[in-house]
Amino acid sequence: MRAKRDWLPGLLLVSPSIILIGVFVYGLIGWNFQLATSDKHTNIADGEFVGLDNFIAIWSEARWPGAVWNALVFTVVFVLTALLLGWLLALLLDKGVRGEAGFRTVFLFPMAVSFIATGIVWRWLMNPAPPDRAVGLNALFQDIGLGFLANEWWLTDRWGMAAMALPAIWQLSGYVMALFLAGFRGVSEDLREAARVDGCSERQVYWHVVLPQLRPVTLVAVIIIGHMSLKVFDLIVAVAGRQLAADVPAIYMWDQVYEVRDPAMGATAASYLLLAVAVVIVPYLVWTLRSERKAS
């Protein structure tokens, strides 16, 4: 056993955050699960333990399956497009564009805007009014003779959330670009040179040498974008308000808690959200822990 004075000061230093995180993060998560497994369907009910009843019942609610579907469409479109676009932008910048710093700033700027502001602007851009009253992108399409591209955006049946992903992509692909650019720069020039000497074409250098080393960066990007996407709330409220056409789990949760005033159902929706995010995050944590251990 090591001497007390070795580990005690360290423990004392971190114990406030351990306690605070214990209470305010894990304690509250525990409380949330306790609510979700109770029948506290009004603010005044006592809430008896009912096991996983709520977790099953929620699937027969009118709104929930649609909300989950919407979140899935949104996440798939948003994450894939933002990754692809961010990667492409980073690749172009990495090839040495003149005025790289300028481009970098321009691409990153949208990230400084709040989702609410983005939402308000895109609400107008994606206005689905028919041709005679068209504004925003639909009007632009008409003016440049691409009227057939005009569409109902997020009001499109079933797949409308793909359009809802556009503002999110606009906002965050610059961030993904920054991550990838750092990744590209992290690949040592020696390796590239070595590959070139061995007769690789420039494309092969990127495909076989640079890309495999970007895996950690890609994972980080997927996790950051993915968990934001699953929790999305403000952007959608700004674009669509709280309507069924653009329902997602976070909005469903809000409505359950503040409109219906059903704490148990709200907590159930929150639990599903947490689980969905955990599915994305836990593998990442495991992976980081493992690589840290390897490094030490």
Binding site: A62, R63, L244, A245, D247, D255, E259, V260, D262
Partner: peptide, 13 residues
């Protein structure tokens, strides 16, 4: 509130 939300959801669907 519960009935009102129920009606709102019904109309949304």
């Amino acid at each position: 509130n519960r009935q009102k939300s129920g009606i709102n959801d019904a109309v949304g669907v």
